[in-house]
């Protein structure tokens, strides 16, 4: 049964991929990309990667699609045909693909429990997590403790993106009442948005604190939190949503998350441990792990929420360039 779902999803992914190549309307491409991402998220669920699925759905199908739509609104929708016949690219792609297929021939078979990848480091994580970290979700324990430093790098990456979008697109808070009045007619959207807004924020907190036990964690929580504000902006206009969080606060939040993460590391050094050695944060090593993971996950959530909002506001508060070519 799993194999069947697997094949169907992979087949659909191929269809979506080819459709993206062929489609000329960029709006349609953006929707197809979103579908592509949702399909991969479903595939991740089948392949037991629930945390990854949640993230892919939120980031790939959600935020990335919104950004693409915003960018298309600011540029243009139609794709022109290429001037050259794509023979060279075709050759490069076929050669690369052939090399990869050649490389698969000595790979362990799909799902093989005896594959080297499952025999060396991974079993340690699975065996030690309940005792050394004291939480059931091994993905969270590896992400937030064993390979916590990668996650610090990841927060830094997203912080870099936020800084970059600020530098490129700026950030212009809109004054009140400059919005189009057409939105007032969207009664259903506004009622639903008002209803859902607090629920989404609540859900974000749930995902943040539940990350130790089930799928979720700081990153997903941050994205969901930001999504709440994006929904609010869609229903009530940009200026109203920006009044909920002033933009100076977003800067502070974006920086604060990275700082919290880094300072947890510095604190563990000052307490005589290594960088990001949570054990020294409390008397009992397992409690120390809990404290450390909670702090850094909160840091991640704050930075991610702020940066996603900064990027979103950066795109939508930019006015379309005059004239269409």
């Amino acid at each position: 049964m799993e194999h069947l779902i697997n094949i169907v999803l992979l087949g659909l992914l191929m269809l979506a991929g080819f459709a993206i190549v062929r489609t000329k309307s960029l709006l349609a491409v953006a929707m197809l990309t979103s579908i592509y991402s949702l399909l991969s998220a479903s595939l991740f669920v089948v392949l037991d990667a629930v945390d990854v699925a949640l993230t892919e759905a939120a980031i790939g199908a959600g935020i990335s699609t919104i950004l693409m739509l915003a960018a298309i609104a600011l540029t243009s929708d139609e794709e022109k045909a290429p001037r050259h016949t794509p023979l060279l690219p075709l050759f490069v792609v076929i050669a690369t693909g052939a090399a990869l297929i050649y490389g698969t021939l000595d790979m362990p078979r799909f799902g093989d429990p005896a594959a080297p990848a499952h025999r060396h480091v991974a079993p340690t994580y699975l065996q030690d997590t309940p005792t050394a970290i004291g939480i059931p979700n091994v993905v969270t324990s590896v992400l937030a403790s064993y390979r916590s430093y990668d996650t610090l790098g990841e927060v830094t990456v997203i912080f870099t993106a936020g800084t970059g979008v600020l530098a490129l697109l700026g950030f212009r808070p809109r004054r009140r009442n400059t919005e189009d009045t057409g939105r007032k007619k969207l009664v259903i959207l506004r009622v639903v948005a008002k209803l859902f807004f607090p629920l989404i924020l609540l859900f974000a907190l749930y995902v943040l604190f539940h990350g130790d036990y089930g799928p979720g964690g700081g990153f997903q929580a941050g994205v969901i939190f930001a999504t709440g504000f994006i929904l609010y902006a869609l229903a009530f206009g940009l200026s109203n949503s920006q009044q909920l969080i002033p933009h100076q606060l977003l800067y502070v939040m974006a920086a604060a998350g990275v700082l919290i993460y880094g300072l947890v590391g510095i604190a563990s050094m000052l307490l005589g441990g290594k960088f990001l050695e949570y054990q020294v944060l409390a008397n009992d090593p397992v409690t120390g792990q809990h404290v450390g993971i909670l702090l850094i996950e909160t840091g991640v959530a704050i930075t991610v929420a702020a940066v996603v909002l900064i990027i979103y506001y950066g795109f939508v508060s930019r006015r379309p360039a005059p004239g269409d070519i």
Binding site: A99, G103, D106, M107, P116, A117, H120, V121
Partner: peptide, 28 residues
């Protein structure tokens, strides 16, 4: 990672000689 189960460079160096005669490692 697929062929060795590790990401650490020194550890990779130790474990690769056992599998480096594979097409996968050559492509990697």
């Amino acid at each position: 990672y697929m062929m060795t189960g590790t990401l650490n460079m020194m550890d990779l160096a130790q474990r690769l000689p056992g599998v480096d005669d594979t097409r996968t490692i050559r492509v990697a």
